[in-house]
């Protein structure tokens, strides 16, 4: 797929419409400029523009199938975009493997289904990437990992295997694992939606604590309480487009777009 697409990306990227945020975006840690993505003929992401400042916390919500996951996965290039630009920490995501690897080192990701490595212990899960990618000495890596495990409140599980933990514990390990790489940005893709209600809180608590520490966060979630507490901006996506973008109090009290209003009605009913 790759080669042919890059030419296109660059060609349209430079001639495409210049987004308005461009002016203040020199300080932005993530810049997405008129980005488009297709699955075959299906247009999943339509002309997305977004710029995220260092330390900003953004919540993305929207109905199922609206392209939230796809969008967030484009930011560490688990998915390729075909038009427009994505610039993360001043590195543009292109086909260049070195750039992708550098970006991925700076961007941590937490998945809906945890994706812990079942053949490694919790501690090994956390140390794997620091040891092999950051080339940290084992002892240092383990010490750092223990610190993060303490931060997510499960240092006593360090030598267990993921299969032996509850869902909430696994997700907290996954957060600790991502943090062990000392990322500048954290991406969350519905981190609580595979969890039982009583476990959601323990994960959200960790995320709130993380937000308080000044981490740049992009978070796909339907936890509106979380959005109200920590988000600087809420982004509403529908049909592959960013429909509305507003600070949480405005977003929840005074949504502008009819589609947002409908979505909020539905979600708050439940």
């Amino acid at each position: 797929m790759g080669n042919t697409m890059t030419d296109q990306t660059q060609a349209t990227g430079s001639t495409g419409p210049v987004p308005s945020q461009k002016d203040d975006s020199s300080s932005a840690i993530i810049r997405v400029e008129s980005m488009n993505k297709w699955y075959g003929d299906f247009h999943v992401l339509k002309d997305l523009n977004l710029s995220v400042r260092q330390g900003e916390r953004i919540v993305i919500c929207g109905p199922s199938g609206s392209g939230k996951s796809t969008f967030i996965r484009c930011i560490n290039r688990l998915e390729e975009h075909q038009q427009g630009k994505i610039i993360v920490d001043n590195i543009e995501l292109t086909d260049d493997i070195r750039h992708i690897d550098t970006v991925r080192r700076e961007v941590g990701m937490v998945f809906q289904h945890f994706n812990l490595f079942p053949h490694l212990t919790v501690l090994e899960n956390c140390c794997l990437s620091p040891i092999w990618v950051r080339k940290t000495p084992r002892k240092e890596a383990e010490e750092a990992a223990m610190e993060y495990l303490e931060r997510v409140k499960i240092p006593d599980q360090a030598n267990k295997f993921p299969g032996q933990l509850s869902g909430g514990q696994q997700q907290r390990v996954a957060i600790a694992r991502a943090l062990c790489m000392k990322p500048k940005i954290m991406l969350f893709d519905e981190p609580t939606s595979a969890l039982d209600p009583e476990m959601i809180k323990e994960v959200l608590d960790v995320m709130i604590e993380l937000a308080g520490s000044g981490m740049t966060m992009l978070c796909v979630t339907h936890e509106m309480g979380f959005a109200k507490t920590v988000a600087d901006r809420v982004i509403f996506m529908d049909g592959g487009e960013i429909v509305e973008e507003a600070p949480p109090h405005e977003f929840f009290t005074n949504p502008q777009e009819p589609r947002t209003q409908k979505f909020l009605e539905q979600i708050l009913d439940h």
């Binding site: 490595f117 053949h119 990618v133």
Partner: peptide
């Protein structure tokens, strides 16, 4: 070995060769 496993490894910044060696092969061998 599920796609999620390779994705998680990639998201951690492991290059392809290491992903294969540290994540995919140990699980596939079982």
């Amino acid at each position: 070995v599920s796609k999620g496993q390779t994705e998680a490894a990639k998201a951690l910044g492991l290059p392809n060769g290491l992903t294969l060696r540290l994540v995919v092969i140990p699980q596939a061998m079982r």
